[in-house]
């Protein structure tokens, strides 16, 4: 009976693992092929005719390097800008009895209910008015502001779990309120800041719809927009597309690995006590 259960669960798990892994393997296989076709003759990732030609071509004959840098710049600035705003806002909401604070938090959350695609047109019109269309600053503002409510909620939950007496002790010890925040609260908030930053970074890194509307100049494209442009030409360059897709996922994988320790403690945030 027990054995049967084990076998059944193994089968189910194998099926779903394959289902999840197959596309990734497929993309790898296509990225190593030279004929720009999306069809595979076999399920081998690496065959005799495989090569790194697509990767080399990506860096030498396309604008991929520019897009990569664009994406890194945009995502990093969004993360730094967003996390700074979110940390201060969340701390204030956690510690100061603001009039209408709870209502404000709910309103903040309710903005998350509108999908960003619904707001595409208004966003675009607004940015054009301010001359920020086709400009990173516009993207930065939209990305930070759409991710901000979630980040504030997340960080507020963390700050709420830190006993107030820690800052009070610091204040009695001679620090100002702000010093207490920087010297005591922020240093023990590593896990929460890591989770929130990662969320900010990933949102910006993989966003397509807004970037596609705002950025018209291929010099300014971020990676998702750039990648899509491979399809737009007469014949889609599947090999290039696949190679780029593989490369795009590398920073994400790296970040997750680097932050994994902080992430695990950050995901169980409420249970951690200062």
């Amino acid at each position: 009976m027990k054995k049967l259960k084990l076998i059944v669960s193994l089968i189910i798990l194998t099926f779903f693992s394959l289902f999840a892994l197959f596309p990734i393997g497929y993309i790898f296989a296509v990225s190593f092929k030279n004929n720009n076709s999306f069809q595979l003759s076999s399920f081998q990732i690496w065959t005799d005719s495989s090569s790194f030609d697509n990767y080399i071509k990506l860096f030498t004959e396309t604008q991929f390097p520019t897009w990569l840098i664009n994406s890194l710049v945009v995502s990093t600035s969004v993360t730094l800008f967003g996390i700074t705003l979110a940390a201060f806002a969340a701390y204030a909401l956690s510690r100061f009895p603001l009039r209408g604070g709870p209502t404000f938090l709910l309103v903040l959350l309710s903005t998350q209910m509108l999908p960003a695609t619904m707001l595409l047109l208004p966003f675009y019109l607004l940015l054009s008015k301010f001359g920020l269309a086709n400009h990173y600053l516009g993207l930065l503002i939209i990305y930070s502001s759409t991710a901000l409510p979630f980040c504030i909620w997340q960080l507020k939950a963390w700050f709420d779990s830190i006993p107030k007496s820690l800052e009070e002790a610091a204040q009695v010890d001679g620090s100002t309120r702000l010093q207490a925040f920087f010297k005591v609260i922020l240093p023990i908030s590593g896990p929460a800041l890591a989770v929130t930053s990662l969320f900010q970074f990933m949102t910006a890194w993989s966003e397509y719809a807004i970037a596609a509307i705002i950025l018209q100049d291929s010099e300014l494209f971020t990676l998702p927009v750039g990648l899509k442009s491979f399809q737009a030409s007469l014949a889609t360059e599947w090999g290039l597309y696949a190679a780029a897709a593989v490369l795009v996922s590398i920073p994400a994988v790296l970040l997750f690995t680097l932050l994994s320790k902080a992430l695990i403690s950050g995901l169980t945030m409420g249970s951690v006590k200062g």
Binding site: P163, S165, L166, E168, A169, A170, Q171, V172, G174, T176
Partner: peptide, 20 residues
């Protein structure tokens, strides 16, 4: 005056030691 300007120190019930 702020706490830091009052020239006093305090021991808290939950100790409030800086964990980091």
């Amino acid at each position: 005056l702020q706490p830091r300007q009052r020239g006093l120190s305090m021991v808290f019930q939950n100790y409030a030691l800086y964990p980091h």
